[in-house]
């Protein structure tokens, strides 16, 4: 199975084979326009993608954070200062004024 993500409406790009993702962790992908995405897979095998850029520090590191779940919702904790982001909505769970972009993902 291959994972694809949608960097912009109606466009899909192949990212990697599903086997490259360890459940509970992420990888980074370079998007055509130079932005970066962070791709994750949870325990049940569902994949998510958000912007790779940590809005608190500017560093492109969210893909290296740990995935967790709270109340059944998946999140990633930034590896730098540990703020958590909901993987489905991109909302920061520790600061309601902050969010990151979410990219649709599919397995083909």
């Amino acid at each position: 199975m291959k994972l694809e993500l949608s960097p912009s409406p109606d466009a899909w790009m192949a990212v990697c084979d599903d086997s490259r993702l360890t459940p509970g962790r992420g990888v980074a992908a370079l998007l055509p326009d130079g932005r970066q995405a962070a791709l994750f897979k949870d325990r049940s095998g569902r994949a998510y993608a958000i912007e790779n850029r940590d809005p608190f520090t500017g560093a492109q590191v969210l893909s290296r954070g740990l995935l967790g779940s709270a109340g059944g919702r998946p999140f990633v904790a930034s590896p730098l200062l540990k703020q958590r982001f909901d993987l489905e909505t991109g909302r920061c769970l520790d600061d309601e004024d902050v969010s990151v972009t979410v990219y649709p993902v599919r397995a083909v």
Binding site: G24, S69, A70, A77, K82
Partner: peptide, 14 residues
Amino acid sequence: PEARGGDGCEVCKP
């Protein structure tokens, strides 16, 4: 109970 079957979190995993 509410965490079973879940992914854990950044505290308990490490």
